[in-house]
Simulated assay, not measured.
Amino acid sequence: MARFEILEAGIGSIGSNAQADILLELGMMYATGRDCETDIVAAHKWFNIAAIKGSARAAELRAELSASMTKAEIARALREAREWMTMH
């Protein structure tokens, strides 16, 4: 987890395209289970934030992922994304 705390702490100092790319990669990491447990809620959260930052690819992946999620999972992912955006 320290890896993400460091990333999140410094995310405001990089350009918006780079931010979106990094956030997209976080989503991919959780979606595929690369270096972590697969977590579709976390993947949706990061895809959503990346899409807000301007990543069209993240928006596409978020839509694809949503098709396999329950309404409760989507609601939780949206809530977590909103909380993250509020704090950062």
Score class of each variant (00 low, 15 high):
Asp21Lys: 15
Thr70Gln: 10
Glu8Gly: 15
Leu61Trp: 01
Leu7Ala: 09
Glu60Cys: 01
Asp35Asn: 09
Ala51Gln: 00
Ser66His: 07
Ala9Gly: 12
Ala75Tyr: 05
Ala31Asp: 08
Gln19Glu: 15
Ile40Cys: 08
Ala67Gln: 03
Gly10Phe: 02
His88Trp: 08
Ser66Trp: 04
Lys45Thr: 10
Glu60Phe: 01
Ala50Trp: 00
Ala51Phe: 03
Met28Gly: 07
Leu26Pro: 00
Ala81Gly: 09
Glu25Thr: 11
Ser68Phe: 08
Ala18Cys: 12
Met28Cys: 05
Ser55Met: 02
Met29Lys: 03
Ala2Ser: 14
Ala58Phe: 03
Met1Thr: 11
Glu8Lys: 15
Glu5Asp: 15
Glu5Ile: 13
Met85Arg: 15
Glu37Pro: 11
Ile6Pro: 00
Ala63Met: 06
Arg57Val: 08
Leu78Tyr: 04
Leu26Val: 08
Leu24Ile: 09
Arg57Ala: 06
Arg82Ile: 13
Ile14Pro: 08
Phe47Met: 02
Arg62Ala: 01
Ser16Cys: 13
Ser13Cys: 09
Ala9Phe: 06
Ala20Ser: 11
Ile52Arg: 10
Gly12Cys: 05
Asn48Ile: 11
Met85Tyr: 15
Trp46Leu: 06
Ile52Val: 13
His88Asp: 10
Trp84Glu: 12
Glu64Lys: 10
Gly12Asp: 07
Ser13Thr: 15
Ala51Glu: 04
Phe4Asp: 10
His88Arg: 12
Ser66Gly: 06
Thr32Lys: 13
Ile74Arg: 03
Ala75Phe: 08
Arg3Gly: 11
Cys36Thr: 15
Ala42Ile: 14
Ile40Asn: 10
Ser68Tyr: 05
Ala18Leu: 13
Arg57Phe: 02
Glu8His: 15
